[in-house]
Amino acid sequence: MEVLINGVFIGALYGLYGLGLALTLGLMRQINLAHGDFIVFSAYLTLQGSLLLGVHPLMVLPVVAVVMFVVGFVLQRLVIQRTLGRGEMPPILVTFGLSIILQNVMLELFSADTRNLNPGPLGAASIEIAGLSLGVLPLLTLVVAFAIFWATSAVFGSTKFGRAIRATSDSDQTAQLMGIKTSRIFAVAMGLTLAISAIAAGFYGMRGNFDPSTGPERMLFAFEAVILGGVGSIWGALAGGILLGLSQAAGSLINPSYGPLVGHLVFLVVLLALPGGLMSLRRRQ
């Protein structure tokens, strides 16, 4: 039972990985292939900040999120925006190139050594609920994930900014006819996705190891969470992430090395049975 509950906890983290991708893919109709590398880069920034200031990684996380917001804003404005409107391939190629550049920059700056973020006593703390011993850090990950999903859903669902980005996603040209500065809106949205990824990176670094080459695997989990949930659905990314986490946990019960394999198999089965993802079930009802 504890293994499955831990699957839910790790799934919440996958959901957070996926949220940034869900926003770029579903709302901005862009694919950022460097998404996983930005998560790892954020983890390194958190590590450096934590070591430099001598404080807990969680204290540095808000600052890293702000830094990554600016990085996302500038990246969209100066690089990705220039590739839009020229077909689907240019943004894919540019972000693929960015992924390689980022991996090499991280290798140069931080070496290939495996690192992690030291959670301190938080890492070992646990609480007893209904006879089950649950880690405080995984529980915190779940709570933070729900809070971020709720906030994102509220911002994109019922604010002026949210309406503007959904309208821009439907039609860039018509959105401009409404007075929406679409390139600015997309830049803010990309900033938000990287800020969310930075928060995910903090919890990732405190719960596992990372090195410059682990980005693509984060990207894969993020992609699977989004597809499992349903492209374009914010809460779908969380549902998809949790299903992926649960599948991996169930697989590891059979054999500890089967976790990722079972996760990928469940992804394939759901993709075949429900191409629209889990949220398509809700829409059918």
């Binding site: 309406r163 439907d170 039609s171 409404m178 929406i180």
Partner: peptide
């Protein structure tokens, strides 16, 4: 200067009221 485009071009992911509200985006 505002325009009603050919073919209406409403935003399908927005409700009727959200479509109307998006018209006021420029806060004129």
């Amino acid at each position: 200067l505002a325009m009603v485009p050919e073919g209406r071009r409403l935003f399908p992911s927005l409700t009727v009221e959200e479509n109307l509200m998006i018209g006021a985006h420029c806060d004129r």
